[in-house]
């Protein structure tokens, strides 16, 4: 009897180890997806937020029914952010390639429309400098009922286009509380020191 018990012990031990392994696997984070998860850096208006390479200070956020830049204009519902941006470590790559506004489950991409008219109309997709920060604006074209959307809104800015494995600056925005104007001239991209 003790002999068959002794023979069964390895089976019990293996079974127990398998169960334990199942618990351990359940507790560890999903490998594949975590390789590319970004590193969020919290930001607020008026304070510089610096990630691994991207540095940003958002100075203002306004909602406008009409935006203009020189001879270009567009009507609708536009969220315009005024900001200063620079890179900290390398200019290659060093462009503000990712700029999204997430409201609930909808994601909006910074508008490229004004830049087709004049490339200095937006800091979006603009190469940033290690030496001196640049100031400018980015604008999001939104549906008319966005101010009524009660979902939390977050602006995300990063160097890479897909937020893969690098820092992402995250700025919460309360769209319903932002200053609202009829018309707004977008700020041109320029050096902060002349």
């Amino acid at each position: 009897m003790s002999r068959s018990l002794a023979r069964a012990v390895p089976w019990f031990v293996s079974g127990a180890l398998l169960v334990a392994a199942w618990f351990v696997a359940g507790a560890t984070p999903d490998g594949e997806e975590r390789i590319t998860e970004p590193f969020p850096v919290a930001a607020e208006i008026g304070t510089p937020a610096v990630g691994r390479n991207l540095g940003v200070t958002v100075t203002d956020a306004r909602l406008a029914d009409r935006v203009t830049f020189g001879g270009w204009y567009a009507e609708g519902t536009w969220l315009v952010l005024d900001l200063e941006a620079w890179v900290v470590h390398t200019e290659s790559p060093g462009a503000l390639s990712a700029a999204t506004l997430t409201v609930g489950d909808r994601v909006f991409r910074a508008s490229e429309r004004a830049q087709g008219y004049d490339s200095s109309a937006s800091l979006f997709s603009t190469g940033l400098s290690l030496a001196v920060p640049q100031s400018g604006s980015i604008a999001f074209e939104l549906p008319a009922d966005i101010a009524a959307d009660a979902d939390a809104a977050v602006v995300r800015l990063a160097i890479e286009t897909e937020f893969l494995g690098d820092s992402v600056i995250e700025l919460p925005v309360d769209i319903s509380a932002v200053e609202r104007v009829d018309e707004l001239e977008l700020a041109a991209t320029e050096w902060i020191t002349p």
Partner: peptide, 20 residues
């Protein structure tokens, strides 16, 4: 292609300015 200037002590890297 791709001229870059690196500062070995800090690892900072600059590249050609195309505009501005």
């Amino acid at each position: 292609r791709g001229v870059t200037v690196t500062e070995p002590s800090t690892g900072r890297q600059w590249r050609t300015v195309f505009t501005g």
